[in-house]
């Protein structure tokens, strides 16, 4: 058995703004303000993004995620930043036909790729069938996870059609079908804290032309 005893901590510790050297052992006395060391400008790179059918060339800090490039550089703020760590799905977009978390990929990694965001699916004047179904079934509340849910839902139906199995697929070697369990499992990478899940599943069923099975 490991000893479940308190980790020894000293009363004093220098914690460099969260840098890994944050030792909790004894620390030097308070330092006076020092002169900041000069740092080079961060590397930038050009990248050409094809978003919703429009090609745009931008110059980005290499650190810029696809999510931030969409939101901050292209002002396409329909794609949301919920956690910035791939834990919520609010940033879901469709790249080269596949849904991904745009927060966990760099803009420079998508040179020339076709990207579809919520704005590319439909507009208030001309809703995509999935957007209309979300409105009809009240598949949202605060609306913040909604663009990600919709992009994910559109891609999910494509994944089932393409025969990609899921955790709840009964026979892993067989063609999966649109069942309620399949939709729930496949949509689980999109968190909705308002809890519109049941309505979202109803909306996807409507677009798929299938009935709830559970």
């Amino acid at each position: 058995m490991h000893q479940d005893e308190g980790f020894p901590v000293s009363r004093r510790g220098v914690i460099a703004g969260g840098v890994a050297s944050a030792t909790l052992a004894a620390a030097p006395a308070a330092q006076a303000q020092t002169q900041g060391s000069a740092q080079p400008a961060p590397p930038t790179m050009p990248v050409t993004l094809k978003v919703n059918g429009r090609t745009t060339k931008i110059n980005v800090d290499t650190r810029t995620t696809l999510l931030d490039a969409l939101r901050e550089n292209l002002k396409l703020t329909g794609t949301k930043k919920g956690c910035d760590h791939g834990q919520c799905g609010a940033c879901t977009v469709i790249v080269e036909g596949r849904r991904i978390n745009s927060c966990l990929t760099l803009a420079v990694m998508h040179e020339g790729e076709e990207i579809t965001t919520i704005e590319g699916l439909g507009t208030p004047e001309k809703l995509h069938a999935m957007q209309a179904a979300f409105v009809k079934h009240d598949g949202y509340q605060c609306g913040y996870c909604t663009p990600g849910q919709i992009c994910s839902a559109v891609a999910t139906l494509g994944e089932i059609k393409a025969g990609i199995p899921s955790h709840v697929t009964g026979d892993i070697a067989a063609q999966p079908t649109v069942t309620t369990d399949e939709l729930r499992e496949r949509m689980s990478g999109n968190i909705c804290r308002c809890g519109a899940y049941a309505n979202i599943i109803d909306a996807i069923h409507e677009v798929a032309g299938t009935e709830r099975t559970a």
Binding site: L76, T77, G78, T79, K80, T117, I118, E119, L121, G122, T123, P124, L127, Q131, A132, F134, V135, D138, Y140, G143, T146, P147, I150
Partner: peptide, 8 residues
């Protein structure tokens, strides 16, 4: 609803 579902 139309604004929330279209990201606008």
């Amino acid at each position: 609803g139309k604004l929330k579902t279209t990201g606008t």
